[in-house]
């Protein structure tokens, strides 16, 4: 029987088939173990609802409600000195939870601390843009939309950034196949020649080492030079290969085996 592959997460592979494997976790610490983080968390808790908070790999992670994202980030910048948004994007948990996780990675240069603000949103839920607070979110949010299809409200230019504007599908979702879907494989053909040309042009050869033995248009063969486009299914002609022109070149005569003396005695 063929093994079942989940359709909602096409890239989930079971490298290990050990049923009793319990994945170890990276240690999480309580926020009270770090004074700076504890003080920051207290300020956030004073104004917004905090769902969860812990310290992992020396950085604090705070879970908030998705509707609070703008307010929390404004508070972080204005009151808590987190002046840089180093990174923001989404994580696809659609297969497990039916949700996207949005994270904002913040840096405070005065405190030398990094904080990650996180929230969960539903698949079709939009999130408020934080581009007014951190300009770097402008491009980061566009990339998030491009890669995951998470819509952002009140963004000045909500368009794809890495993929072409007329692309279909969101490449970083777990449901998007690694090799690309049907739209991706026919993108150029459809756009330049039209769908009806698919049969004429044929699919793209993605195996870089593929050689079609009888294709005289795209492949050359040494020793059997044939004209472009010639039919060689009946066999190909042998091309005589010589290392020198007939009659020799300037100062050097043509050497032929018959007219030459072949020395067999090495000591001569």
């Amino acid at each position: 029987m063929r093994p079942y592959t989940p359709k909602d997460n096409v890239q989930k592979k079971s490298y290990y088939t050990d049923r009793y494997w319990v994945a170890p976790q990276v240690a999480k610490f309580d926020v009270s173990t770090d004074e700076v983080f504890a003080a920051d968390l207290k300020v956030i808790k004073g104004k917004f609802k905090v769902l969860d908070a812990y310290i992992q790999v020396e950085q604090m992670v705070v879970y908030i409600r998705p509707e609070d994202n703008f307010g929390v980030l404004k508070l972080m910048r204005d009151s808590l000195e987190y002046t840089q948004l180093s990174e923001m994007s989404a994580i696809d948990w659609l297969a497990d939870k039916g949700q996207f996780e949005i994270f904002y990675q913040l840096l405070s240069m005065n405190k030398r601390k990094r904080i990650r603000i996180k929230c969960f949103i539903e698949e079709n839920q939009a999130i408020e843009s934080v581009e007014k607070i951190f300009r770097s979110a402008d491009w980061a949010e566009r990339e998030m939309y491009d890669m995951f299809g998470v819509k952002v409200n009140n963004h000045p230019f909500m368009k794809r950034i890495l993929m072409p504007y007329d692309w279909e599908g969101y490449p970083l979702r777990k449901t998007y196949p690694m090799q690309g879907d049907e739209f991706a494989s026919w993108y150029e053909v459809d756009k330049i020649f039209g769908k009806e040309a698919r049969d004429v042009i044929g699919p793209e050869i993605r195996d870089a080492a593929a050689v079609d033995r009888y294709d005289t248009k795209r492949f050359a063969r040494l020793g059997h030079e044939v004209a472009y486009g010639e039919d060689i299914s009946e066999g190909e002609p042998d091309t005589v290969q010589t290392y020198q022109e007939e009659g020799g070149v300037f100062l050097v005569g043509k050497l032929t085996k018959e007219e030459s003396v072949v020395i067999t005695d090495r000591d001569r």
């Binding site: 490298y15 290990y16 976790q25 992992q56 790999v57 950085q59 992670v61 990675q105």
Partner: peptide, 12 residues
């Protein structure tokens, strides 16, 4: 062949 499996967690 199968690769290492570090503990599950997040790092920046």
């Amino acid at each position: 062949t199968q690769g290492m499996r570090p503990p599950v967690g997040e790092v920046y």
